[in-house]
Amino acid sequence: MRLVLGKIDVLGPSIRRFTLSPVSGVLPVAGAGAHVVLEIPGPGRVWKNAYSIVSTPSSASYEIIVRRVEHSRGGSAWLHDHARVGDVLEVQAPQNLFPPSRTSRRHLLLSAGIGITPFLSYLHVPGLSFEWHHCGKAEDAAAFAALLPETVTLHTGRNTLNLAALLAAQKLDTHLSLCGPESFMDFALAAAEHAGWPGQKIHKESFGGATGGAPFIVHLRRSGQSIHVGAEESLLDAMEAAGLVPPCLCRGGACGECKLPVLEGVVEHHDHYLSSSERAANDAIMTCVSRARTTEITLDF
């Protein structure tokens, strides 16, 4: 669908809110936790970036909050530096891979940085019982504080949140939801595991997508193609740039849709989907965020 940029709000030094309205007609309803994928024009290619929808489900437009990533691959830099009110963007219909668990009585929400966004939509869910701790840099404190109700605890200093104690003190009817950068997620997940949380009671959404890395060559056995994956592009992006249509959905290593079988080569996993034993098996790769550790890798696609 084609959506027009209706409004741009500057929330912080590197954080902006964008309002996307339909050119005509009515938008599909997006529930709490949903995201949209924006197709953002760039030099020589199109960036497909996923952003959580923070507006209410009944809203006539979608609101997204975007941080300008340092060393941005293109998506967030374009939105911050080039996007103007009135620009029309191609936007894929919303998907929801991170809805609040409806069967849980209590929710512990932990977020860091721009991982605040999916939980902002949780605020619209009537009757959701939650305790929310958000961690951010001091420079973003004002921007985050303006977005959060008083019930949310904002941590902007180092070591102000004792995650281990917080996680161990939760009642048995509590569900844990996490969103933040990879380092935050890894730390929180390790603390949760140490406290005895079963994996079934944890939901997580990562963002930021591919981080880039050493370039490599991917051989696609069934397509008969060999593609060079550059240092600044993801495997999925490179395959799409070569004219292929590999499976994908969230583009952030969370949903598992883009999983492809690995025939040769060693995978450098960056996703949050495969378990540690599946990673060790080295027989599958999530093309949206993971890369090759070897100079070449062969996939069954």
Binding site: A168, K171, L172, T174
Partner: peptide, 10 residues
């Protein structure tokens, strides 16, 4: 007991 317990109980 379960209403009082914290996470980590099996």
């Amino acid at each position: 007991r379960l209403a009082q317990a914290t996470v980590g109980l099996r």
